[in-house]
Simulated assay, not measured.
Amino acid sequence: MDTVLTHLTTVLTTKFEVPADLITPRSTLADLELDSLAAVELYVTLQEHWNVPLDDSEATPDRTVGEISRTITTLLPQREQPAAGDESG
């Protein structure tokens, strides 16, 4: 599991008390029983942690954990993203 997805899972389990066994990349916010206010709060929490500009209008019940994770990953500076096949030396 990548760093963003791991942190997202941690936030969902600790701050929003979502059972860990319910969280998969395909789980929607509705599946996790997050109402619209909780979804916006999740986005704000993630923005603050990762220092990325998330659009909280996208915090809809049909958004999946995987989609949120991918969105954050694409917004991170290159240095924080794992580089596929990147070998230094």
Rank of each mutant, 00 (worst) to 15 (best):
M1A: 15
D2K: 02
T3K: 10
T3N: 12
T3V: 09
V4D: 13
V4H: 09
T6C: 02
T6L: 06
T6G: 08
H7G: 02
H7I: 05
L8I: 15
L8A: 13
T10R: 08
V11K: 08
V11N: 04
V11Q: 13
V11I: 13
L12T: 11
L12C: 09
L12S: 12
T14K: 12
T14F: 01
K15Q: 15
K15A: 14
F16E: 10
F16G: 13
A20E: 15
D21S: 14
D21M: 03
L22V: 00
I23G: 14
T24P: 04
T24V: 03
P25Q: 09
P25E: 11
P25H: 11
P25T: 09
P25M: 06
R26D: 14
S27A: 15
S27I: 02
T28P: 05
T28I: 04
T28G: 08
L29H: 12
L29D: 04
D31A: 12
D31Y: 04
L32G: 08
E33A: 14
E33N: 15
D35S: 09
D35G: 12
S36D: 11
S36V: 03
S36E: 10
S36H: 04
L37Y: 09
A38E: 14
A39Y: 04
V40H: 04
V40F: 03
E41M: 07
L42G: 13
L42H: 09
L42T: 11
Y43C: 10
V44T: 14
V44R: 08
V44G: 09
Q47N: 14
E48G: 11
E48K: 11
H49C: 01
H49G: 04
H49N: 07
W50K: 04
N51A: 13
V52I: 13
P53E: 15
D56A: 11
E58I: 00
T60C: 00
P61G: 08
D62A: 10
D62C: 00
R63W: 05
T64Y: 05
T64W: 03
T64C: 06
V65Y: 05
V65A: 11
V65D: 07
G66W: 02
E67T: 08
I68L: 15
T71C: 03
T73Q: 11
T74F: 00
T74P: 00
L75Q: 14
L75V: 01
L75P: 01
L75G: 03
L76N: 01
L76V: 01
R79Y: 05
R79M: 00
Q81V: 14
Q81M: 08
P82M: 05
A83F: 02
A84G: 03
A84S: 10
G85D: 11
D86F: 12
D86Q: 09
S88V: 08
S88L: 12
G89H: 13
